[in-house]
């Protein structure tokens, strides 16, 4: 099975309330809160696509879109 790679990490800034849950529990410190207390993806290359930020977000503000590893083309 090909390794999961992050294609896109979408954060809905209108829905995010800056609770910091996604930031605190990301195993790779991919996310940070910005000056407006909104979650932002700072290190997409480190994401292991565990999905936990998306599954725990109380505001349904995160969407992880996974691509296939080792392939350049878009799905």
């Amino acid at each position: 099975m090909a390794k999961k790679v992050l294609k896109q990490l979408i954060i809905n800034r209108d829905w995010c309330k800056g609770c910091g849950i996604c930031v605190k529990f990301c195993p790779r410190q991919v996310l940070e809160l910005d000056g407006k207390d909104k979650s932002v993806c700072m290190r997409p290359e480190a994401c292991i696509c565990c999905m936990m930020c998306e599954l725990r977000c109380p505001d349904l503000a995160i969407e992880i879109i996974i691509g296939q590893g080792g392939q350049e083309e878009d799905e």
């Binding site: 829905w15 309330k17 800056g18 849950i21 599954l55 725990r56 977000c57 109380p58 505001d59 349904l60």
Partner: peptide, 20 residues
């Protein structure tokens, strides 16, 4: 949306898990 629950309220996560 955004919903009425406070920042970090667990009820939003219950909604999230239930929809999945």
């Amino acid at each position: 949306f955004p919903h009425m629950w406070c920042p970090g309220c667990g009820h939003g996560t219950v909604l999230n898990s239930l929809l999945r």
